[in-house]
Design a protein around this nucleic acid. Structure first.
Lengths: 201, 201
DNA sequence: TTATTATCGGAACTGAGAGTATCGATAATG
DNA sequence: CATTATCGATACTCTCAGTTCCGATAATAA
């Protein structure tokens, strides 16, 4: 949040090599603690304790708490762009998969905070944006295939399509505590978004 | 973020009355500092200094930093649901007004952080949700009038409509640093959202 | 007028947590 | 075997949220 050292990677050379084991254990502890404690109760002292590692070992790899959290997220598997049913069904499935991941991991606790930090921390944005972009791929791929099949117009901008599908979902997920995100509700939102994608403006 | 005292209001009675002047000056300083320092650089010591007020005077009114920030936001004027043009034009105008407010006030710095806190602080949610709901009214009203005019189907859920209009915008505003939010881009998003609202699912 | 009470600004204080520095020990290179 | 960068452990600095106590002030109630 303040300074960031010039660390992260180290090229092989003389000296004791970094323990890959330590890296794995730290990221495991990070995820577990984010889930159990929430972002507010999440401290690096707890990570160090649970991973049985010194704080120096953590800061040697990641320059800040936020970078560590992003690194932990980076290991979560990407969304799988299913291709089994109709366009709407494929989108509904990937959206529900996303909702499920957010709810069962630390994402719900950490993502809004990271978004807030990102705005004013360029180094954090550099780590955060690729992660986010990777999550956006699934929806884009599904839309892209629909365009190839001729179900959606060729001129449709993929970013616009993605924003239309995920925007309302993100809103209900993070901004409103009570938004309806049942399969029926999601299907309704996605169906309407798809209708908006059809034809030109 | 941790404890919250039982304060906020005080009924008139014996003793020195609370200074309304102090309240005003504190909220002014809060807004100014949020803009100039960002949420991370925003501290209550700075607020006290700039407002020439003791911290006790602040905490006597608001139980936490977050509550103070929300109180400051609460004074920002509501969105005006213009009713001058077509449905799409009215929505575009109110969305652009919202974007402008976010960009020229401290909202961009503070809103994501507050959203993150809201998820795990019930007392904060209690203060935050009404504020948010009030901002959602403008779009809902415009949509409601369109339904009355018969431009949109009577069965359309207002919350769904609002999510479809604002979702993509919020996404570009807070999650992506670089999203296109020009008038042309907004008109494109809104037009597509409106098309999604038409007809049943 | 006088007693009571809750505010005021000022200032010191507590507690927690991010990030740094130093230790002797260990594991690699050359 | 000399060099070097890691290791865990521990203590430290700094900043900030929130608390507490002060003497002074401004209202109510008798």
């Amino acid at each position: 949040m303040t300074k960031q050292a010039a660390v992260a990677v180290r090229l092989p050379g003389p000296g004791r090599p970094r323990s890959e084991e330590a890296e794995r254990v730290i990221l495991d502890a990070t995820m577990q603690l984010l889930v159990s404690e929430g972002y507010a109760g999440f401290t690096l002292d707890k990570v160090a304790a649970q991973a049985r590692v010194s704080k120096a070992t953590i800061y040697r790899r990641w320059p800040s708490k936020e970078h560590l959290v992003i690194a932990a997220f980076d290991r979560t598997p990407p969304l799988t762009p299913a291709d089994k049913g109709s366009l709407v069904e494929n989108l509904v499935n990937v959206v529900l998969e996303f909702i499920n991941i957010v709810r069962t991991t630390a994402l719900s606790a950490a993502l809004p905070v990271l978004v807030g930090e990102r705005a004013k921390n360029p180094a954090l944005a550099e780590a955060f944006d690729p992660w986010l972009e990777r999550r956006r791929m699934a929806v884009k791929q599904i839309v892209e295939r629909a365009i190839e099949r001729g179900e959606l117009p060729a001129g449709l901008d993929l970013n616009t399509a993605e924003d239309m599908v995920m925007g309302p979902v993100i809103l209900r997920l993070f901004f409103y505590g009570k938004g309806d995100l049942s399969r029926i509700a999601v299907r309704d939102l996605v169906s309407r978004a798809v209708r908006g994608m059809e034809g030109s403006v």
